[in-house]
């Protein structure tokens, strides 16, 4: 592969794939990439990562996401949880995704909902912000996927609701997981 006399920095390429550049900057990168095999290769490597991040289902999903999974042939089990109540979730053999419906949330004036997924013993694992939420049902949906088995089983979900006119509130759901493989 030929070398590039003035390569595009990886910072700019990351910004390109993160939609953090204006139209003129995007055009300039397109022009450089079409003329430069080295930078095209680097851009392709970063696109691979951006695609992987966009293509996965995050821990928190919308009802439409659930229907997409179901339409794609995934075997789904749904269960319900209420705050401050410890209830074990059994991931049965043959199930692809468990949808945990975290209920009992006051979402009528919610502007934003964030979910922190943590191990009770080891602390935070993932944080998902601006998650989808169902105002009428007062719930947030967690998509528990089989490959989460690799993570600690003593899972707790902290759901933080940012209200329009009052201080944020946090509800915690303790859901130890058992995987029947």
């Amino acid at each position: 592969m030929s070398t590039c006399a003035s390569p595009i920095s990886t910072e700019r390429l990351v910004a390109y794939w993160a939609n953090d550049l204006d139209a003129a900057e995007i055009d300039a990168i397109d022009e450089h990439v079409f003329a430069c095999e080295t930078c095209a290769h680097e851009s392709a490597r970063l696109e691979q990562i951006a695609h992987a991040l966009r293509d996965r289902f995050p821990p928190t999903v919308s009802r439409a996401d659930v229907e997409t999974m179901r339409a794609g042939g995934s075997v789904i089990r749904e269960n319900e949880f209420v705050p401050d109540n410890r209830t074990t979730a059994l991931f049965e053999r043959g199930v692809d995704v468990m949808i945990h419906r975290l209920r009992g949330l006051s979402l009528a004036d919610a502007e934003r909902v964030d979910v922190l997924v943590r191990s009770e013993a080891n602390g935070p694992m993932f944080q998902d912000m601006y998650v989808p939420f169902d105002v009428e049902r007062g719930e947030v949906l967690i998509a528990c996927q089989r490959h989460f088995e690799a993570f600690p089983a003593d899972v707790a979900f902290d759901v933080r609701v940012h209200h329009r006119d009052s201080a944020p509130t946090t509800s915690t759901y303790f859901i130890p997981h058992v995987f029947d493989l």
């Binding site: 691979q48 992987a52 490959h147």
Partner: peptide
């Protein structure tokens, strides 16, 4: 394309702030 299991394993190694920034940038 990279598999979901590999992505998850690599994401898990990142610190919380980095994971959250990636999640918000590319998924949300």
């Amino acid at each position: 394309r990279f598999g979901h299991d590999a992505l998850l394993a690599c994401m898990y190694k990142l610190d919380m702030r980095a994971k959250t920034v990636l999640q918000l940038s590319f998924y949300r």
